[in-house]
Design a binder for these strands. Structure first.
Lengths: 180, 180
DNA sequence: CACGCTATTTATAACAT
DNA sequence: TATGTTATAAATAGCGT
């Protein structure tokens, strides 16, 4: 919005992101307050910032916020119930969906676990025997047995060509936006 | 805020007030969305407009999140042959991909958390004061734990990079979220 | 890194249709 | 009154301290 047109995307750089967040948070809260004042309406905003422990809210006074939300109770019961139920149902359904997605992620993370394990075996950071001490559950254990077999073959191949697997992985340290 | 400097006071004229409300509502929602996108945080806004009896909220309908795990399984079989050529790179890329997925899931969960919270406030099942204990939300907390667990395991496996999800929420260090 | 300072982009009050 | 346009105020990205 200024010296450069805004990129509507996640700001990767931590410092820039934090600076932007700080400025925009202030601007946003001001806007909410202005709208409330100018138009005489009740408004509320909730921000789950990655830097603040507690969510930023407007109005700052929980009582006032409560008052804003309490106004909902003055709405005709029919409309209210309808909308609320819809919203809540919708939200719960989406949460269920998310849980399923998390399960998938968990499963797929095991795949990656195996890949990493192979890497480590090949680079000498680990060895197939250590599988015995890895936490075992029926799923991953069954897979691991296969992996050991594969790993053995890979190791053989590797020994034929000579080695060369190595190097350290690096991370940008940017981290996830919600991390504190 | 333009041809005349803004007067921070209630706009008496009905037409003007309504016009201002409409424009500012749009601007505000845009700002909320921008802040959420740019800084990777979760945000919500509730406006009790004088004209509609149901509150305007943001996000109005976060449906765009189904794609979260879309391409996750996309691993062409042909690539698997090359896979061994540069395992570490490949694995690292997949890990990054997973992190991206986890990041999105986290944000998604957070968004739902906010929605649910607002819904509960509106229906009287909850109140703004309970913001103090938001972390107690069973569902979202469970999801967060799962996600954190994934990330933690990945971090352990990589045995490096201090970043990651790094949740602020308390973690009892519990075991695998296998069974849910 | 947090602040303060512009150069520009955005938002929008007043008009116009 | 609703929508579109324009002149101007407000917000803010990139810098400098």
């Amino acid at each position: 919005m200024t010296r450069r047109k805004v990129r509507l995307a996640y700001i990767v750089n931590h410092s820039e992101r934090k600076a932007s967040y700080k400025k925009r948070k202030r601007g946003l809260m001001k806007k909410v307050q202005e709208l409330s004042t100018l138009c005489g309406i009740d408004a509320a905003a909730v921000l789950y910032g990655p830097y603040d422990e507690r969510p930023e809210v407007w109005p700052e006074d929980p009582t006032a916020l409560n008052q804003v939300l309490a106004r909902f109770k003055a709405v005709p019961a029919s409309e209210k119930g309808k909308w609320m139920v819809d919203q809540e149902t919708f939200t719960r359904q989406r949460i269920e969906k998310t849980k399923e997605q998390v399960k998938k992620i968990l499963r797929d993370s095991r795949e990656k676990e195996i890949h990493l394990f192979i890497d480590q075996c090949l680079s000498g950071e680990n060895n197939p025997e250590s599988l015995q001490s890895q936490d075992a559950n029926d799923v991953s254990f069954a897979i691991k047995r296969n992996v050991m077999e594969i790993t053995r073959r890979l190791a053989l191949l590797k020994n034929q060509d000579g080695d060369g697997v190595g190097g350290a992985a690096a991370d940008d340290g940017g981290g996830l936006p919600q991390g504190h």
